[in-house]
Write a protein that binds this DNA or RNA. Sequence first.
DNA 1: CGCTTACTTGAACCTTGTCAAGTCATGTGG
DNA 2: CCACATGACTTGACAAGGTTCAAGTAAGCG
Lengths: 258, 258
Amino acid sequence: MVAKSTMGSRRRPLDRGTRRASIEGLRKGGMPEVLRVIAAYKSSDRAIKSGNDLFQPGEPCDAIYALVDGWMFLYSLLEDGRHQILHFALPGAVLGLYPARVTIATYGAQALTDAVVCIIPHKNLGRLSKEHPEIGMQLAAIVSHDRNLAYDHLSSIGRRSARQRVARLLLELFVRYRMQWPGHRIEEMQLPLTQEHIGDATGLTGVHVNRVLRSLRKDGIVEFHYRRLRILNPDKLVDVAGIDPQTVFSWAGHHPSE
Amino acid sequence: MVAKSTMGSRRRPLDRGTRRASIEGLRKGGMPEVLRVIAAYKSSDRAIKSGNDLFQPGEPCDAIYALVDGWMFLYSLLEDGRHQILHFALPGAVLGLYPARVTIATYGAQALTDAVVCIIPHKNLGRLSKEHPEIGMQLAAIVSHDRNLAYDHLSSIGRRSARQRVARLLLELFVRYRMQWPGHRIEEMQLPLTQEHIGDATGLTGVHVNRVLRSLRKDGIVEFHYRRLRILNPDKLVDVAGIDPQTVFSWAGHHPSE
DNA sequence: CGCTTACTTGAACCTTGTCAAGTCATGTGG
DNA sequence: CCACATGACTTGACAAGGTTCAAGTAAGCG
């Protein structure tokens, strides 16, 4: 309760220099078909400033959201004010999908950069699934993909060393990000996170993330400095992360334009 | 690769004395409606002996499964032979649902007790969702519930002490189990796990689970001995687990008979 | 009975957390 | 343009929670 509003204040807007707007033009194919269908049932759009919440733990939820632009993350809170980041959402994600019966969010969603979502109220979903019978199954596939990511995240946090966890997270974000610009062979990206965010996602402290990061850099594997991620040695990164390539491939999911 | 078959051999059948058969008669309402609909499209049933796998990581998957009877768990493997338990599946669960594009399982499913599943081949799903347009959305809700459980599991492993993790797991299993027999006020249940299973689920070693368990017992909170779980002080358990009651409630999900 | 599997317990060790101080880059108001 | 505030990143010393290794006990099965 008390801690509920701490994140917004502790985390200032961080997205100077992300230059999303200019990069935006490069993205091919735009939204996947499913999302275009869903978005047709939106009641409105909403812009969220970096560091602000789209919804918070404990709030009643009466809508789902399609993330049109920007990065967000899902998090859960502990009584002592620490938090756990559950998932990073990239453009094209569907947020706020809860099983029908649950009406209270158990986790929150916060913007990492300035972001834009379409709001699709629950009351429109009945009409949506009547007029587009295939959409239910496709939503199930999307949620299933998120669940699999959560499962991979789980074994990372549960059974791997700090070094492996950090490597895995950077790899995941890199792979998912690059999926949005197919054909591009960039090994460098704008990653709108602080080391503290990485800690919150991997179950480590910011301090320890720092140590791991500079060890990875010393070994010539990755460089992460002031929101810029550079993969120096992709093969070695996969190796250090201890992930089987099949799994890495599965993170990418559908290509948006397909 | 090498480790793939270790679980079956390391984990002998454990379900002597679970007496599922006699308890079975008490369960009210049977399967939820969704599952009855899905099961109508099954190709066949399959019985799995305790300790055997329904499917393994790396296998191609061409079907989904409705767990009719028995307990199972989903797990992922590490190269060194350790594993992480991702989810415990109780009767009524749907297993093997992957996003359409993924054809290779990244995790495995193993029986904790002798178990029975209905096999619904992917090729029947098209017909299913045509003839029952509502089923897609309902499947999405089921997967979404699993995803939320994974998210709670995630913050438990990422941010909580060994004591809290173990307490949370026992609480979760207890709540989900009791949901199957509404009205019953039992504080005792057959829990077909070893301490090692608890360790694999919570990201701890079996040895440390043992220490935690006996400390919880010393404090008069829970007793877990030879596959029998007794909740001595439910309120204190929720307290130790450090979980907000709203979340505990959400684990229960739909009541099967509704 | 003797075997196997699970459960117990102790001691040494190590990875990661905690605390605390300090640096660097950026933004702000005088 | 400088002094100062702020948020993020660095680094070191020390503590602690959990792991590892190893040995031993209890319960159930053939």
